[in-house]
Computed example of a mutant assay.
Amino acid sequence: MDKFIMRPEDELMHQPDPCENFNESVYSNGFDEKTGVGGWMRLGNRVNEGYAELSVCLYLPDGRIACQFQRPHITSNDKFDAGGLSYRVIEAFKKVSMAYEGDLLIVDNPDALRDPQSLFANGPRKPGSVSWTHEASSPIHGGEPVRDDIPTMYGRDFSRGHFNQHGRVRGRIRVGDEEWPIDGRGWRDHSWGPRYWQVIYFYRLFMGNFSNGDGFMLLKIADREGYSRRIGVLLVDGQYEEITDLDVMTDWTEARDPARVRLGVRTAKRMALIEGEILTLAPLRNRRKADGEVLVSRIAEGFTRFRWGEREGYGMTEYIERIEGDKLAGYPL
């Protein structure tokens, strides 16, 4: 029996829960197969809190990052369109588009993102745009659980419903007078339900695509008690294989950022060793006030080149964890 259900209407907007932190979000990434230029965009509607979370992060050929992070005001959850970032379903489960038009911060040294207040106050900006279409190259993975006892991907207190999909991505990035075509592959997701980033104690998420059409989405997520779950899929010949085991080994920099990863993966059909080199890391953070204290999470977004045997491609490495004092919850695992 299937544990999750997906209906065509789940591609669209959902009725907000009464909880304050209801969030409905869409995310997509895409990278050109020849140049590796690309990035990711996310828009999360927090209608009960009156704003959306807007994130655009583009990785340029010379190591620069062009990005924008805002909290534009919203009053309803009837569409994904805020602050210059929009998302449209062209055909359910088959084709979507995402586009941004507006200013972009130009980050020559990604370490500047560790001091966002100074960067936003003094960082150089250029007008920019990015638009692409995501055309499915895989089935939908996930959905809404059919029973209350079924664990969701991130846990029921972090997105009750969630689905994701690999696909072909075609579009264009413009930053100032420079332009780059995007003709490659990517990954997208859509989630809805309660969400605070600080609910996650730590996780490691890997999303990759290869030029032959294969790919993967792999997640290791742990709670404060030390219990971890390993979730994900390998995409082989257009079909998903659920993983049965996942090992994650990380090489770290002196700044405690991930630099390289080695992933040991097992499905019912095969074993795989996938290696990743993080080419450019965006060291981001999220802060939230709760009960008189400020809770902080590290969100490290790494543009990554992956290898699986003779396959080579691009994608993202995402490390999220609570920061408590000087301690990173998942480091050095």
Score class of each variant (00 low, 15 high):
58 L>T: 14
59 Y>H: 12
59 Y>V: 02
60 L>E: 04
60 L>T: 12
63 G>K: 06
64 R>F: 00
65 I>R: 12
65 I>T: 14
70 Q>H: 12
71 R>M: 09
75 T>V: 07
76 S>P: 01
79 K>D: 06
81 D>T: 10
83 G>A: 12
86 S>R: 15
89 V>W: 13
89 V>D: 03
91 E>L: 07
92 A>T: 13
92 A>E: 08
96 V>L: 10
102 G>A: 06
105 L>Q: 11
105 L>T: 10
106 I>W: 14
112 A>V: 04
114 R>Q: 13
114 R>N: 14
118 S>W: 14
121 A>S: 01
126 K>S: 06
128 G>A: 11
133 T>R: 06
136 A>V: 12
139 P>W: 02
140 I>Q: 07
140 I>H: 15
140 I>G: 02
141 H>V: 15
144 E>S: 05
144 E>G: 00
145 P>Y: 05
147 R>V: 00
147 R>Q: 14
150 I>C: 13
152 T>L: 04
154 Y>G: 02
154 Y>P: 01
156 R>Y: 02
161 G>S: 15
165 Q>V: 07
167 G>L: 02
167 G>H: 00
169 V>T: 04
171 G>R: 11
173 I>K: 03
175 V>I: 10
180 W>Q: 02
181 P>F: 08
183 D>W: 04
185 R>L: 12
185 R>K: 07
187 W>T: 05
192 W>N: 03
192 W>H: 04
195 R>T: 13
197 W>P: 02
197 W>V: 08
